[in-house]
Amino acid sequence: MLRYALSRLLSLSLSLVVASLVIFFVIEVIPGDPASYMLGMNARPETVAALSRELGLDQPIFTRYLAWVGGMLTGDFGTSYTYRVPVGDLIAARLGVSLPLTVYALLLTIVIAFPVGLIAAATRGSALDAGIMGGTQLGIAVPNFWFAMLLVLFFAITLQWFSAGGFPGWDRGFWINIKALTLPAVALALPQASILARVMRSAVIETLGQDYIRTARAKGLTSRQAVVGHALRNALIPVLTIIGLQFSFLLAGAIIIENVFFLPGLGRLIFQAITQRDLIVVESVVMLLVFAVIMVTFLVDLAYAAVDPRLRRRA
């Protein structure tokens, strides 16, 4: 088990190194001189030169890459050109919105999808199953940001149960913020829950056809006992894969949906940074997003090993 975890950790580190190289070179190398690019066409040469020095652009490329990575490892993400504050502080504040939103949406996704998928699998072929499958088919087709707008229209503008947007801040208490994140989380979760419920259903149905289910039935288990005792844990293996992928979709979705609810999260930060050509911020936020996705993949790999004993031995 430990060896498995170590080998996954090794491959995770490798992915991070390659990802950082890709991000760094795409942003810093391809567009030419970042300083003049950041300042725009009309900037005076002295200003460009000053910014170049400030950004350390007069250094060789590899030194700059090492400095960037070394800085990130020690928590120093550089200084934002437009805000004139450390990027680390900017990100930390915004992460306090985006990360809870993503996790909230992921929890909702799982809480909705598991029972719905199980019920559909247990009643497969029935009218209930057909209804669930039709509903999830619709759920998958709905863009989350549009669904968010409908939620605002209905729950905030018409019923006035929720505010149409904004975020009070964690210093104002826990529940008030959870309430502010509820509509965005529901909007994010519903399409993903539709996908997960379908995966859950087909995974359970697939395992129900396996020989070991017949063995269990021959032992005297009822079909319900066979599902709970034998099918569920095996069905979890493909379901985990999808949950891992969904995290990255939810994270990306959170960035988009912040626009609908005027949430001060990473999404707002990065889109402003793009318009203001604040490349240091773009670079760091993208790296952070990729880091989060790779970390979740690692956690999913560990979860596999917990579910499936066949993986624990393999290095």
Partner: peptide, 16 residues
């Protein structure tokens, strides 16, 4: 797979 489509779009847009 570690770069969701949105992130790739952000990278490309930031440059081009």
């Amino acid at each position: 797979f570690a770069f969701p489509a949105l992130v790739i779009a952000i990278l490309i847009t930031a440059v081009f």
